[in-house]
Design a protein around this nucleic acid. Structure first.
Lengths: 347, 347
DNA sequence: TTCCTCTAGTAAAACGATACACCGCAACAA
DNA sequence: TTGTTGCGGTGTATCGTTTTACTAGAGGAA
């Protein structure tokens, strides 16, 4: 491997000069143009590539950001990641992503790895099943700039980005209401997720405002720790079995919505003609579903880039030794109307 | 940040001893047990975390592997990535993934970044649109252990992992044949992809063997550079418009298959009753589609772990200065039968 | 002349680890 | 006594950069 010393020797200048020139910083303006072009030429010709380890070691800056995702195969994570990357690209901060492989016990090893690499900050994509107060408070204790995406913990001083769940479900039910639906079934999310409660509150408050009656028999709840296709399917079957003639269904998320659509189809009901279905998340596949799913778009990319922006601020603040309060941002979701909803059949 | 010197000072031993103990290598057996536990205790108490930059700089080993993916939001990439990670976890090699964000011009910047980080090898997940001979031959020129997943280039000395496309489509059409289908429509992949040709050859050879007649009017081809939902949908519509009463459809990939199913459904045809549909890839969403898709499972995770295994071998070989021939592995895909296929209606 | 400033660079000390050669001492054999 | 071996470590150079402080020489002013 060719080092800066090789470039220095070959060009006839000192390593200091070479370093100044190649870093193109303000210091390099003190070097004559002739010298500069000469050094650049030699560097290119030798195929010189600075060793980032040596650089970071000396300069005490890694220009690196840790990102912890709970499952890299989950589109939820990858879309947020995309937002982070897009935002970071021009900033010279490189994201190092670690994947928990859906296994919470990997959190500490991953953190160790990132801290060993001297990341300047950490973004965590929250999985509420793994991410508890204790883990998060480590960040503030160690004084590491950190942002959590997907969850807000009031009592832990860590910045966060979350979606406004209630606003999302309000849009969903508003849409159904506008289409003339009044007998609406619901599949609520698991109790342990705060999202479940927030989404439900959005639905409930709107229903109350406009006077939609919520029939307890039409409200089922996911019992597992997270939503699965299997359980969504079974809950939808249960609703159908009850034969309570609902004309629309609001599912906790897209996965559940797709499962419900499948169950309805299997039962001989057409979506949306016999029953409209609304999801939540707008995962990439939802636009291609049969039928394309009307759902609440979470703006995951935006959440990612907001998170990246926040961590940049935190890092800047830390570099300038400036104290900074944790910030909490909430993004507004947007309903995307596709083909899984239509006007209620007039009974 | 606490350094090894702090641990040495605090424990009363030299940095050398601390280093040997904490690395727990064979050298540490020469140190007494009392000393070892003492040093471990101090290290833990101080929260010592070795600086990987310093370590790599001195030891000239980064224990790091570069992975270039063309689009991190594509399940094709993330599943392969999962396989790589699972294989690498115990080996102490850490994958640094860079995302081209579906933009071929990012390849060189990414490569530079990885080489600057002194990765010991590189795995590229091939996107045939970006990845050409020139880029790949850089690896062998620079003598960097490299593996390409998803494409095999005979004339470039780079190891590769690919799927046996023809074997996959043979299984698909065999399945339809066994169900009694003989009028089968096809949507072929784009010409620029080798996969398209290989998959087609598998279909053609089987059809010839068992005497299925291939009607040119039932064979359409994707004109774009890669498959899209839009084009799949339109091609399926075109097939339907022709009214040639096919009872089954083999799509180039799952995306196309889903688009076709949607088009069939919109046209009032039921899948699979009126028309069976088979895809290729088995992306995660396919199992949840409406109806769940019969498709050819590519074993992407396996491809990833095979790639990881190969790169490990290459790195080992390079470390021992042992020359090694590029290897090419082909994984056998497996048909997964779900609900988008059923026996042909007897006409 | 002497002093100062500016230009265009250079020398040497870090950064935090690992690698390599070495060392003092005890035990034991010749 | 002398030499050898094993045990339990230690001292110092080194990895490839950046940073800080410094310098030789030119030019101009007093």
């Amino acid at each position: 491997m060719v080092t800066i010393r090789d470039v220095a020797g070959q060009s006839g200048f000192s390593v200091t000069t070479v370093s100044m020139v190649l870093n193109a910083g303000p210091a390099s303006s003190r070097i004559s143009a002739r010298t500069r072009t000469r050094i650049w030429k030699v560097a290119k010709q030798l195929g010189y590539r600075p060793n980032l380890y040596a650089r970071s070691l000396r300069s005490r800056r890694s220009h690196t950001l840790g990102v912890v995702v709970f499952d890299l195969t989950d589109p939820y994570c990858t879309q947020i990641l995309r937002g982070i990357q897009n935002h970071l690209r021009p900033s010279g901060l490189f994201p190092i992503v670690t994947d928990l492989l859906d296994d919470g016990s990997q959190f500490h090893p991953c953190l160790d790895m990132l801290l060993g690499r001297r990341v300047e900050g950490i973004i965590t994509i929250a999985n509420p099943l793994y991410l508890d107060r204790k883990l998060l408070s480590e960040f503030s204790e160690r004084n590491i700039p950190a942002v959590v995406i997907g969850r807000e913990l009031a009592d832990v001083p860590v910045s966060s980005v979350v979606v406004d769940n209630a606003a999302g479900t309000r849009q969903a039910i508003q849409h159904l209401y506008d289409l003339g639906h009044s007998r609406i079934a619901f599949i609520k999310g698991p109790k342990i997720l705060v999202d479940s409660l927030q989404r439900w509150q959005g639905l409930e408050s709107f229903a109350e405002e406009v006077g939609i009656r919520l029939d307890p028999k039409l409200i089922l709840e996911i019992k597992g720790r997270n939503s699965t296709y299997r359980e969504g399917y079974e809950l939808a079957e249960e609703l159908i079995r009850q034969r309570s003639d609902f004309t629309a269904l609001v599912a906790f998320d897209d996965l559940t919505a797709c499962a419900a659509i499948r169950a309805l189809t299997k039962a001989g009901l057409q979506v949306p003609k016999d029953c409209s279905v609304v999801g939540f998340d707008d995962v990439p596949g939802s636009a291609f579903y049969n039928p394309p799913l009307t759902t609440v778009h979470q703006q995951l990319e935006l959440q990612g880039s907001l998170g990246a922006e926040m961590i940049e601020d935190l890092i800047r603040a830390a570099a300038e030794n400036r104290p900074v309060e944790p910030k909490h941002r909430k993004v507004s979701p947007k309903l995307v109307v596709r083909d899984s909803t239509c006007p209620a059949r007039s009974s």
